[in-house]
Structures are given as structure tokens and as C-alpha cells.
């Protein structure tokens, strides 16, 4: 692996390149979710009957998943703190725990969806459920992607290399968490 260009090491904007980039990634993600959830909200506000459909979601499962993601976010930020102190192995351990949180989230989601689909609430049942599966599905893809990247970051962090990456993947993970924080009331709570 060749050394990175000098361009990457400069920081004329006052912050490290990778952190700057991850914030731009987040900005571009906000509009992806913003467009989708905006479309959902306008349907939701206009269709009284959607309250009826939404009543069939399970806020306890959704709440548990929120708890899982919040906790994994805590692990991510603790990993970042460890990386700040130069403690690579602890940072890696925290990232593995974060990944575990992501995995648990996906498992719970899989259980939840299986139950719902077996009760006839499929993606084609009506537009509410279409939005439900699409929004949560895109979010779940972000969780999976974050987990995979995090495993790579943890591998290098364990050897005390590239520790700044711990913070970067952490910021991304917190963003995925924030998206869920809004998905949760939108899909589960508002009835």
C-alpha cells in the first residue's frame, strides 16, 4: 500500500481531511433520508388511515432497537476516546462491541420483520408498509455497511495503526444512530 498523498495530510479548512469528508458524507446522507422521510411525512399527515396501519408496529421492539443503537454509539465514542489516548487495543475492543450492537440490531429487525410479514404486513400491503420497509431497510443497509467498515478499522486499530479512523467511523455510526432516533418515532410512536 502506497503512502497517502501530501494532499491528504493538509488541512487548510482547519480540520483533518477524513473528518471533513465524513461530514460531507453525512450531509449527502441527510438529503437521502430527508427526501424519503419527507415523502413519508406528507403522506402520513394527509392519510388519517395510516394511524391505523402504524398501530400495528411494535414500539417495544423499536424501542429496544433504539436502546441497542444508543448503547453501540456509546461504545463507539468510548472507542474514540481510547484512540485519542493512543490505546489501540481498547479502541478495537470498543469497535467490536459497537459491531456487536449493530449485529443485534439487525437480528432484532429480522425477527420483527419476519413476524410482520407472516401476519400479512408485507411491503406491498399498502403504502405505509412500503415506506416502513423502505426507510427501515435503507437504514439497515447503513448499519450493515457501518459494521463492515468498522471491522476493517478495528483490525488496524488493534495494531495501533491509523487510529484517527476510529473517530471517523464513530461519527458515521452516530449519524446512523441519529437517523434511527427519527425513524423510531416516525414509524413506531406516532399513531
Amino acid at each position: 500500500m502506497s503512502a497517502r498523498p501530501i494532499a491528504t495530510t493538509r488541512s487548510a479548512a482547519g480540520m483533518p481531511t477524513a473528518r471533513l469528508a465524513v461530514w460531507w458524507i453525512i450531509a449527502s446522507e441527510i438529503v437521502i433520508f430527508g427526501g424519503l422521510l419527507g415523502s413519508y411525512i406528507m403522506h402520513r399527515l394527509a392519510h388519517g388511515v395510516w394511524a391505523d396501519y402504524a398501530a400495528a408496529t411494535n414500539p417495544w421492539i423499536g424501542g429496544f432497537n433504539t436502546f441497542v443503537l444508543l448503547t453501540s454509539s456509546l461504545m463507539a465514542v468510548l472507542g474514540h476516546q481510547a484512540a485519542e489516548r493512543g490505546d489501540g487495543p481498547r479502541a478495537a475492543k470498543m469497535l467490536y462491541l459497537t459491531c456487536g450492537g449493530g449485529l443485534l440490531f439487525i437480528c432484532v429487525k429480522a425477527y420483527e420483520w419476519t413476524t410482520e410479514i407472516s401476519h400479512g404486513m408485507t411491503i406491498t400491503a399498502n403504502t405505509f408498509w412500503s415506506f416502513y420497509y423502505t426507510a427501515a431497510g435503507i437504514h439497515a443497509l447503513h448499519v450493515i455497511a457501518g459494521c463492515i467498515i468498522m471491522l476493517f478499522v478495528a483490525q488496524t486499530a488493534k495494531k495501533n495503526l491509523e487510529l484517527h479512523r476510529v473517530e471517523i467511523i464513530g461519527i458515521y455510526w452516530h449519524f446512523v444512530d441519529v437517523v434511527w432516533i427519527f425513524l423510531f418515532p416516525l414509524l413506531y410512536i406516532a399513531k
Partner: peptide, 14 residues
């Protein structure tokens, strides 16, 4: 581009 394409990406998936 970055600020405008998001809704269409979501729309594309839809």
C-alpha cells in the same frame, strides 16, 4: 449535486 441528489436516490429506490 450532493444536496439535491438525495431525494432522487431515495426516489430511485422507490
Amino acid at each position: 449535486f450532493m444536496l439535491s441528489v438525495g431525494p432522487l436516490l431515495a426516489g430511485g429506490i422507490m
